[in-house]
Nucleic acid binder design. Sequence first.
DNA 1: ATTGATAGTTGGTATATACCAAGATATGAA
DNA 2: TTCATATCTTGGTATATACCAACTATCAAT
Lengths: 248, 248
Amino acid sequence: MKPSVKTKVEKTTPLPLYQKAQAELIDGIKSGRLKPHEALPSERALAEQANISRMTARKALDSLEQEGYAYRQGRKGRFVAEQRLSHDISSTLSFTTKALRESIDLSIEILSKGSEQANSKVASILRISEGDLVYTYHRLFRVAGQAILIETETVVAERFPSLLEHDLQQSTTALFEKEYGVQSSQGQLTVKCVAISAENQAYFGSGSTPYGMEVELIINDVSLTPFCYGQQIWCSEMAEFTVLTQPA
Amino acid sequence: MKPSVKTKVEKTTPLPLYQKAQAELIDGIKSGRLKPHEALPSERALAEQANISRMTARKALDSLEQEGYAYRQGRKGRFVAEQRLSHDISSTLSFTTKALRESIDLSIEILSKGSEQANSKVASILRISEGDLVYTYHRLFRVAGQAILIETETVVAERFPSLLEHDLQQSTTALFEKEYGVQSSQGQLTVKCVAISAENQAYFGSGSTPYGMEVELIINDVSLTPFCYGQQIWCSEMAEFTVLTQPA
DNA sequence: ATTGATAGTTGGTATATACCAAGATATGAA
DNA sequence: TTCATATCTTGGTATATACCAACTATCAAT
């Protein structure tokens, strides 16, 4: 994709080996020889087929993944990703945060929970001191069985004693209010597009894109004191956020 | 960020070397020791500093780049990236307005403009009849020379006679107000993650991710009548959106 | 049929080495 | 001062090798 433009025939520098191998695989995918969710050659297999070293083959496959043609399932192997076009990526299942709130078929899985000492980032967000105790829990949200988001929430432990003994398979804002009288009033959200780690991608299932939306949120109580910091990774196919801006 | 929660100490597998090196660099960037556009240690230098091999150092730096902390200038070296452009969509619909206010080095290129008949989607959004005349224009926005978003806006022609003869290299909301007395008051935005077409990716430059954020927006006037429909594709590395949620 | 150990495959990490080409810099001649 | 040349640094590509941990498939014992 970056040929030098000189005069005549000009070899344009022979394509690097890993790009050649990659191009062949892309060709296979585009032509349909390799179908979505089918296994790609393993690093070692590709190395032998293409007569290149494993590290070079690996680079070709990594690159393929970065461009969205493939995905990985940990040590199970690499597979062809679903093809996507820019407009229909979320048309199949448009999703809003509102829908999530209202969805009946919502299940929440607790991936882990524990207490730890606030690091500098969390401390500054929650306006506590570095080292103060915080509770952290990871949760996986599913709608109709399909994983749509992974959430990490961190709250000030002092304000929510023995929080982890409560049932976390529910709305935590409701829990905060019911059990601790902490009412959330206002918050700040940040939305950006990020690469999804292989680990998280495993949750979203084979064929999900390697990119998704990251939502960071800070929830304040009525006194505008922040008490909860959340980080959510949304499966790109499922994430769609709408905002109503206020009259100026 | 993925601690397993078992019983006591639990080694959680010692962090890979390249991640350790990467974490140190990120720390340096976040703490301000390494400033934007400053050179990062070269692969060989990092290898020596961290007492790891060059390939491992390279992996750390590559990873840093993938996460948006760094960028490369060919063989010149690697540098600390500028922080993401943050845009609070709940307070300012117009990115141009924001750029102006914060004296961001913004340039706008008109890719195309013209009038056409509203299709059913546009007609229903703008509450006009299918076939009614609308103006459409495509614009490319650059900040400090780097393309960050491509926009397509469609407005009701009847309300903005000879709009296309005006200078479109400015904030259109300002133009609407100054020239036509149409004041934008409120709007609705939808943000999602989409694959970027090859055509659009050409604008963002090679090396940008094949995914980005799509923002659809509908702008209403003071009577809450929609008059402008916009669709923006943002380069994922360059942007993030923040939202301030209102007290319930 | 179920279980359980085993061997093979796969990706993940890490190192050492090699050569190339594009930039940057210093050096020396004009 | 200016310009060309040589040298050094930097990333880019490529290979060979090694060991680990997770997963799969197999085959034997129950």
